[in-house]
Design a binder for these strands. Structure first.
Lengths: 151, 151
DNA sequence: TGAATATAGCACCGATCAAGTCCTATTTCA
DNA sequence: TGAAATAGGACTTGATCGGTGCTATATTCA
């Protein structure tokens, strides 16, 4: 229902933490303890973020994770898509064939498809412009995103 | 995962249909048939939209539904909240006590709370500015919503 | 060398929610 | 009175979310 899963929630916390500890390797346990998140979840999330290339890992007893990209280059959108799969506001937004209206005849095609596509694109742009660095910059400094409707 | 449920999907179609048939009473069956949506779903959605005051109903064999508000006054946000409950990007966005970080100590408070609040507000504004009338206006005319990050 | 501490990769489970169905009133018209 | 509509529920099923567990591998350090 237009909510982000807890994975993304945790994932952003993890990334913000790493952004604030640039240069160090932080262990999953350390991060989980710090923010009272379940360790197993955090490790899973870190593994996913690793596969997506946002972070680098080092094994062994001094191992851990660190950002492999500037925090400003990691968008909230990319984090969401890494942890939850491709963003789709509604089912039919990705492929025409997947649409629940894909089987509709010629004239009875979905009356809201194209506007919803727009809305979806707007949402993507919106989330793409906000980076982990923005979120790490915490206070009221956090950019107020203004959506403007118009031609 | 940041998706809207099918209820909202159907709901918008229903409202757009009613907007395009101002003055007439349209039956649930008529609308369900027209867009090949499951009748039972459509009737449930109409009942909810009725309770929310967006539409008016008339019983009996000539009965049906019609908009009780100008389409321009029904925002996508209000439709979503009617059909899916209050918008919450993350769990902790509504009440501080509900937060999974509500139990955190003083110093270990959630590092992303306030930026996420902003993001949530931005999303609300965004969806509030788009109305059923905008969606009914279908073609490329549909307002392109531009998210701008900045002070 | 071996124990401790990391990551790596899966498979799995329970609770919740989405999506859809069904049943039983009640109202209105013909 | 019967057909067709709304009104208000409960209910079922399947998918997803949130979380756990296990095994293997790598690295450090005593």
């Amino acid at each position: 229902m237009l909510a982000v899963t807890r994975k993304t929630d945790y994932g952003l916390i993890v990334l913000v933490h790493l952004a604030e500890h640039r240069g160090e390797f932080c262990s999953a346990r350390e991060i989980a303890d710090r923010y009272k998140m379940p360790l197993a979840m955090v490790t899973n999330i870190l593994k996913t973020l690793l596969r997506s290339g946002f972070i680098a890992s080092e094994r062994g007893s001094r191992g851990g994770y660190q950002l492999s990209l500037p925090a400003a280059d990691i968008s909230v959108l990319s984090v969401i898509e890494s942890l939850e799969g491709p963003l789709r506001l509604v089912q039919c937004v990705l492929s025409a064939t997947n649409s629940s209206f894909g089987a509709c005849g010629l004239e009875a095609h979905c009356p809201i498809r194209s506007p919803i596509q727009r809305l979806h694109e707007g949402l993507r742009e919106y989330l793409e412009k906000i980076s982990v660095a923005d979120i790490a910059a915490r206070p009221a400094v956090t950019p107020l995103v203004r959506a403007t409707v118009g031609a």
